[in-house]
């Protein structure tokens, strides 16, 4: 088997593993109940609320950006449990990330989310700008 085939199999299997951890109906419901009111049905944002559609995957290019998606108040302070929050984050990235998603997505785990949400952000807008600046500057993707 060629190296190319092995790489393709690895990519395909990681994609399957990513999706397998998501219950789409439950994730959609939790998105609707906890996120959609501000981010909109398609993650389009608007009215001062950040757009996730075609953008959210950009944050996954750095560890700081990955943590940010859990530490934002909407995630960290939501009424969702750790496993539900991890699921809805993974679902949003899959649904809305599109071409902004980097290759080899690693799903959030309940444990990871549980640790990160204990440190919610306060000055979110300024911090978000610095996270994005670091991603652009570092060109880690």
């Amino acid at each position: 088997m060629s190296k190319v085939c092995i790489v393709m199999l690895l990519v395909m299997s990681s994609g399957v593993a990513y999706s397998q951890q998501i219950n789409p109906a439950r994730a959609l419901y939790n998105y609707q109940m906890s996120c959609q009111g501000c981010h909109g049905p398609e993650g389009q944002g608007g009215g001062g609320v950040p757009r996730m559609q075609g953008f959210v995957g950009l944050f996954l290019n750095t560890a700081q950006g990955r943590d940010f998606l859990v530490q934002v108040p909407g995630s960290a302070n939501s009424a969702l449990g750790n496993s539900e929050l991890a699921e809805v984050l993974n679902w949003m990235i899959e649904q809305f990330g599109g071409s902004s998603n980097p290759p080899g997505l690693q799903p959030y785990t309940a444990r990871e989310v549980g640790i990160l949400r204990k440190s919610p952000l306060n000055e979110v807008n300024a911090y978000r700008a610095s996270v994005l600046a670091n991603i652009t500057k570092g060109a880690a993707y």
Partner: peptide
């Protein structure tokens, strides 16, 4: 308003709950 509050209501016709914006 594009920003809303969302809840659920039971529809008496089919006995199912729906997400309402």
């Amino acid at each position: 308003s594009p920003i809303t509050w969302i809840g659920t209501c039971l529809n008496p016709v089919d006995g199912r709950s729906y997400v309402i914006s």
